[in-house]
């Protein structure tokens, strides 16, 4: 037998770590979604699709600015010493993923802003002269538009990776301590972004294209999940115990039903039928993908805190 009794019972630490509540999964989900939007939107900008008003790259940057602000607010709500948040921007610690993230977000805002200026929606034109002048300047230089597209894609990848690296850098939490986590969150973010466009677009071509792309992302996500789980299952005892939390432990039901079942397999099946014209496109599938992406973050954040070394 091995029985350990301790007299410590610190709030949020004992009996098991539970320092992060809904704010962090929501922040990570929105971060991943924005990352995916930036990559998709950047790709469409490169393709010259910004010229078509109905196309999603026309309004995706505006949505992502709002989403990112929502995500940052969620993160801010999680801080325990809120008035000191400005301290993030008085230094840069290269060993801290959170420090990288806070600076990446500072760079992302203006890049997203530039993306919105490529095409200002009609109702907002001639409201702020500076924006109109900037928009005119950008449109005079097609190379600049291409560079904004490339920058959006690059920073989108960086943001998507960051949401995973943020957790995987915690060696003390075996479930998070996987080199596959950044890939999982990046692919999940891409899938969620594709689902969002699929959900809101009015353009038939775009809906079809994004549904196909989402099918590819969801399939890839299943493979990445396979790598993530296999990597942990073939590691040390603590890592095996950690991954069992989601495979057969207290988080298994949510993981298998809401993340894998209704979050990936069911929408993938519906969308495969839709793109093959067996059934009509339905908002149910992308809604399930979005809900599955959110549940993925909840399961990973909660179960990861539960996982421990001793």
């Amino acid at each position: 037998m091995q029985e350990l009794t301790i007299t410590r019972h610190n709030e949020m630490i004992d009996p098991l770590l539970h320092i992060w509540s809904w704010q962090i999964p929501v922040y990570l989900f929105i971060g991943g979604l924005v990352a995916g939007i930036m990559i998709i939107s950047g790709y469409f900008v490169l393709q010259g699709q910004y010229k078509r008003n109905v196309f999603s790259c026309f309004y995706l940057p505006h949505i992502s600015l709002l989403l990112l602000t929502g995500g940052m607010t969620s993160l801010f709500l999680d801080l325990e010493h809120k008035l000191y948040v400005w301290r993030l921007y008085t230094t840069f610690h290269w060993t801290s993923p959170m420090s990288w993230g806070s600076w990446i977000l500072v760079i992302i805002y203006p890049v997203l802003w530039l993306n919105t200026l490529i095409r200002i929606p009609e109702r907002y034109q001639n409201k702020v002269p500076v924006f109109d002048r900037l928009s005119a300047l950008i449109n005079k230089h097609p190379v600049l538009i291409k560079n904004i597209g490339i920058l959006n894609m690059l920073l989108g990848v960086l943001l998507g990776m960051y949401t995973g690296v943020l957790l995987s850098a915690f060696g003390a939490r075996p479930l998070w301590n996987s080199a596959m986590l950044w890939m999982l969150f990046l692919v999940s973010g891409l899938s969620a972004a594709a689902a969002l466009v699929h959900l809101i677009t009015t353009d038939q071509y775009e809906r079809e294209l994004l549904a196909k792309a989402d099918n590819a992302f969801l399939t890839l996500e299943l493979f990445v999940f396979g790598g993530f789980i296999t990597g942990l299952l073939t590691s040390t005892r603590v890592h095996i115990d950690a991954v069992k939390l989601i495979l057969v432990g207290p988080y298994a039901a949510v993981f298998w039903v809401l993340v894998i079942g209704t979050g990936i397999l069911l929408p993938l099946s519906i969308q495969l039928l839709a793109v093959n014209h067996k059934v009509k496109h339905t908002p149910v599938a992308p809604l399930l993908v979005l809900a599955g992406g959110l549940m993925l973050r909840f399961v990973i954040v909660y179960a990861g805190q539960y996982s421990h070394w001793s």
Partner: peptide, 22 residues
Amino acid sequence: CIGCKACVASCPYGARFINPSG
């Protein structure tokens, strides 16, 4: 300290906690 709790999550010994002041 901004109270982000990253240090709490990173400690395998559970040696840190968040003071009620944040």
